[in-house]
Simulated assay, not measured.
Amino acid sequence: MNTQKSQNLTNQRPASLGRRFGAYLIDWYLGGLATALPISMVSMKLFQTVQNQNILSFPASYGIAAGTAGLAAALFYYVFIPAFIWKGQTPGKRLVKIRIVSADGNEVTLPKLMIRQILGIMVVEGGLVTASALWHQLATILTGIDFVKPLMYIGMGISILSSIITLLGDHRAIHDRIGRTQVVSDK
Rank of each mutant, 00 (worst) to 15 (best):
H171E: 11
M41V: 13
L151I: 03
A23N: 08
Y29K: 03
L56Q: 11
Q12F: 13
A23M: 09
T166R: 14
A23L: 12
Q12T: 08
L142Y: 00
T130E: 10
I100V: 15
I64T: 07
G67N: 01
R99C: 11
E107M: 08
P150E: 11
I121M: 12
K149W: 12
L138F: 07
T166L: 15
G63R: 06
N52S: 03
L167W: 13
R20I: 04
G67S: 05
G120Q: 06
G169M: 08
G157D: 07
R19D: 11
D104C: 07
L25M: 14
L113Q: 12
L119A: 13
F84H: 14
Q89S: 07
G127H: 06
T3S: 10
Y78F: 15
I160W: 00
I154M: 09
T10D: 00
S159V: 06
I160F: 13
G18C: 05
L113I: 02
R172A: 05
V96H: 08
G105D: 09
G105Y: 03
P14I: 10
S159L: 08
I81C: 10
S16T: 14
A15T: 05
M156H: 08
Y153C: 01
Y78E: 06
N8Y: 13
I174T: 03
I85F: 00
K112F: 11
P14M: 13
M152A: 13
W135C: 03
L37D: 00
V79R: 01
S159M: 05
F80Y: 15
K112G: 02
S61M: 12
Y153L: 15
T49N: 09
S185L: 12
L151Q: 04
P91Q: 07
G67Y: 03
T35C: 15
A60G: 04
I158K: 08
A103C: 09
L161S: 05
L167C: 13
I39A: 07
K149A: 15
T140V: 04
S40P: 01
G105V: 11
L119P: 03
L110C: 07
Y77D: 04
L161C: 09
M44Q: 11
A73S: 10
T140H: 01
S57H: 13
F147R: 09
I64V: 15
I165F: 15
R116Y: 14
D104T: 08
T109Y: 01
Q117E: 15
V96Q: 05
E125N: 04
A133Q: 05
H175S: 10
S61V: 12
L17E: 06
G22I: 05
T130P: 04
A72K: 01
V184F: 13
F80S: 02
G92T: 06
A173H: 06
F147H: 12
D27I: 02
L9I: 00
P82D: 09
W135K: 02
S40E: 06
A69L: 14
Y77C: 09
G155D: 12
V50D: 02
V42A: 05
T90R: 02
N106C: 12
G155E: 09
K112Q: 14
I164S: 02
R94Q: 08
L30C: 07
G157E: 11
S162D: 03
G31C: 11
G179T: 04
R13I: 07
F84S: 09
V42I: 11
A139S: 12
M41G: 04
L151E: 01
R94I: 02
L119E: 03
